[in-house]
Nucleic acid binder design. Sequence first.
DNA 1: CTATCGCACTGTAGT
DNA 2: AGTGCGATAG
Length: 751
Amino acid sequence: MKYLEGLNEPQQRAVLHTEGPLMVIAGAGSGKTRVLTNRIAHLIHHGVDAFNILALTFTNKAANEMRQRIEKMVGNEARNLWIGTFHSVFAKILRFEAEKVGYTSNFSIYDTDDSKNLLKTIIKEQNLDDKIYKPSIVLHRISNAKNNLVSWQEYISNPQYYEDDKAFKRPELGKLYQIYQERLLQANAMDFDDLLFNTNLLFKQHLDVLHKYQHKFKYILIDEFQDTNYAQYLIIRRLSAVHQNICVVGDDAQSIYAFRGADIGNILNFEKDYPDLTVIRLEQNYRSTNNIVQAANSVIAKNIAQIPKKVWTKNEAGNLIRLLKATSDNEEGRLVANAIYEDKVQYGYKNSDFAILYRTNAQSRAFEEALRKINIKYRIVGGLSFYQRKEIKDLIAYFRYAVNQKDEEAFKRIINLPKRGIGDTTVAKLVVAAYENKTTIWNILENPRQVFSGKTATALEDFRDLIKSFTILIKEQDAYTAAKEIAKQSGILKELYEDKTIEGLSRYENVQELLNAIKEFTDNPENTDKSLSAFLQQVSLLTLVDEPANDQDNDKVTLMTIHAAKGLEFKHVFVVGLEENLFPSPLMTETRADLEEERRLFYVAITRAQKKLTLSYALTRYFYGKLNTCEPSRFLDEIDKKYIEDANPYQRIENYTNTNLVNTLRGQTQNTTRIAKSNLQHVPQYTPSTDFRPSDTKNLRIGMQVEHMKFGYGKVTAIEMENNQPHKATIQFDTVGEKTLLLSFAKLRIV
DNA sequence: CTATCGCACTGTAGT
DNA sequence: AGTGCGATAG
């Protein structure tokens, strides 16, 4: 039995139990991935056709990793497996069957920004107050409905929803839901939730289609089952109804996505839906030291909603958990960076052995600065993801619109970008004309002279012809050739190239990076369809961990949110920002269930560590440029003290006033050179010395900020040198008048 | 129609 | 701190 080697008894049972429903409760670090991959390899080895296996994961990265591991074990056959995220697998199926749910196969996928923008437009049109009907709240409510498979028709006809919304002063929500869905359909677009909703619709209304896929997927595996929502659960229940060979793997203790509709009940109630279910528990942890395992257990011990189990390990006790106490976020950064440095020297750890985990993306700044200062390489996972950058979205909007001319959000993005003399007024007229003639904007563009005249009409015609040529380009050329041409001919590349500011430079590089990614896609022999629309189909579902890896140097410290860290492990993990109102998040302390989820998040963070764990907090922190005082997190009190190095770790500081802290902080941070967060990865170090010469001063306009104070824009009138280096600059600001500032303190932006 | 400026708002996680 | 929006001037 080749796929059982090195597995413990319950792991072996999980691999061998191939027929009938199976639930594996896999504690943190219990070798879950190994079980999953060995199981699939075992199936294939015993004659199951890879075409008949469906494996659903939560990130594309997890899917790729699984595919690679299986490929190593069983060879090329692994290529025929269906492995992917829920969204990507069912988007693929929906493209095949699009007509059956009222779409065409070139439908666009709206991301959250597109959805919010669309809702914003609708809310405005309906003359509703956008302070009460905030797009994010409306979208959240609609998303909840869809995840529970409530259509807009049901939503409107159910008085309960109306009463609920009325109680929250938002009686028009049902109407908004209806209009939103109608607009999406009109735009031939689906949002993320529609991918699951429409898959359910498809399977419910077209039994022949359901039967086809039921027959195809004889073996179904779900990873991270604790994070599935109702819509996802129903899909897999339908798909597995015939063969019943469904294997779900999860850990209720690591359920951290209830906020977006994941239902811990799925795992707790699975037995009811599958009476002859086999349950296997993997409780032995192979990853972490005993201290880490026990500390993690103590964190969630008080939670009520959980399956009773005991994660244990044979590993050594290991170090106690360290606690770092800082007075400011910057100091916290320095302490963590120093600890990393010491570990590297003392134990020979590599950069890639470390991870810094935080609750919110905005916390990364202080750690980036501290690491850069002592020349430790790092990478940030997530944050403003590559595909969310404006310049990337702009270019992709061109692709989208050339593929699907009904895509209104893409249209709005590109119609006047770069500037071509088609402003808001013209767009508004277009929308009205389309509405009055009961047709699409694209149809009006076909013959704009019926509505417009002169310059505007010519501009619209030019735009139309441009898009038409792009559509042909996409049909006839491979993705890379088409994308490169579109970037050039649209004028996006030129506009960015001419922008010589730091930001402009990095934007230009980003676009090049996107083109490189498309080239990789085109050159990859595994991709049979090399068209740009094929690339587009996968790009809209890419997750933060799938960004183009353009550098070979992988020895870097990893900075990311705890959510993004699920499934990963590192020798030394830093869980930072352990402050009340940050972690736990104030949005998750209202109900017991919320707080329990937040505790599980802490549990996930702790259990990423193999050898060492360090926790840290700061007593002051900047939010939106304002200094706030913080208290240590209640979570620090909840860990069993005997696993912490300093059992009486902190004193709550009460005598500090805000002013004192500001002054302390000023004293500590005055020498830092700050760089815009968004530029960090692309502009490693800004050096005034190379960019400034006294002779430049006459016409140099710069933006400037010192510490957290923004002085705005102004004209440089004099630069004072010291040791042949620019030292001080005198600037006539538009807003605050003339100031002389030390250049080493400042972040500068040339405009 | 576009560019610029000041103001208001933002406040979790990610497909 | 960063961004997006609306008002205003050009």
